[in-house]
């Protein structure tokens, strides 16, 4: 019966780069190069924080991208649930965005911890924003685990879409309860100093370019990852088709 399966093996030709992804990729490279140059050499060091302020050019954009990623996941999940055809593209974008989001969120917590250690003398504080971010990370690690549970593509899409939307319920509740918890015990003071940073023009520009650069990197990664996921899904369904065909020819042979 092996001959039957070998004939059904398909080759997948999928475009790995399109003009859009090339453009986004190029924008990402250019803006990231700007951030590296601007962040490390052009911008001045901070009056109080010294060179530690340069962490901001990575920390703020990664935090922005991480939150953006989870918004994209939630919207794509809602689109999958609401769309009549249940187009799998939405599910793949949701999954790809969550994967990239988890990496960026980990980078945010890491860079924030290091920055906090230098400026405030502590890696971690029970600030509502920090705590919510950490919970978001764990929640989406769980989301990715749910995506890996197995089963049919439709099953994966439905489960993970529901989990992503439940996370939208959960995160505001976590944030609110941590906010209330801290406000009853001590004022959340750690991050309130952020607004006091007097920002030089070159610093602000570098920061904005950083946000654009990291957003482009995110978009580029999500687009490519979605394509890879599409190919993985195609392989999975073709293997299923091949197995079905094998079984069909087997039963035909028995007759």
């Amino acid at each position: 019966m092996t001959s039957a399966s070998s004939t059904t093996t398909q080759t997948f030709t999928a475009k790995v780069a399109t003009p859009t992804t090339r453009l986004v990729g190029a924008m990402a490279i250019v803006s990231m190069a700007w951030v590296v140059l601007g962040g490390l050499f052009v911008t001045p060091s901070d009056v109080n924080q010294g060179d530690a302020v340069r962490i901001m050019y990575v920390h703020v954009p990664t935090a922005w991208v991480a939150y953006l990623a989870f918004i994209v996941t939630a919207i794509a999940s809602a689109c999958w649930l609401l769309s009549r055809k249940h187009a799998m593209g939405f599910d793949r974008v949701a999954g790809a965005s969550a994967e990239v989001g988890v990496i960026f969120m980990a980078m945010t917590l890491l860079s924030g911890g290091l920055w906090g250690r230098i400026t405030w003398g502590t890696y971690w504080a029970w600030d509502p924003r920090l705590t919510t971010t950490a919970f978001l990370l764990v929640t989406y690690i769980g989301y990715l685990a749910v995506r890996g549970l197995g089963g049919s593509l439709e099953q994966r899409a439905r489960r993970s879409a529901v989990i992503a939307l439940l996370a939208v319920l959960e995160i505001p509740l976590v944030h609110f309860s941590v906010l209330m918890w801290r406000s009853l015990h001590q004022r959340a003071s750690v991050l309130s100093g952020d607004g006091d940073i007097k920002m030089d023009g070159s610093m602000l520009t570098t920061l904005l370019v950083g946000v654009i650069g990291f957003t482009c990197t995110f978009a580029w990664l999500v687009m490519h990852r979605s394509r890879v996921l599409a190919m993985q899904d195609a392989v999975q369904s073709s293997q299923l088709d091949a197995a079905l065909q094998d079984r069909a020819s087997e039963s035909a042979g028995l007759k």
């Binding site: 769980g142 685990a145 549970l149």
Partner: peptide
């Protein structure tokens, strides 16, 4: 219900559930 019948449900359930019930832990404790 989500993890029922899934592979590795023993470890997956706490990972999914505990972050969600954190507000209950905070609120009920206070």
């Amino acid at each position: 219900g989500l993890t029922a019948g899934a592979r590795g449900r023993e470890t997956l359930l706490p990972l999914l559930m505990l972050p969600v019930v954190a507000p209950v832990l905070i609120g009920a404790t206070r």
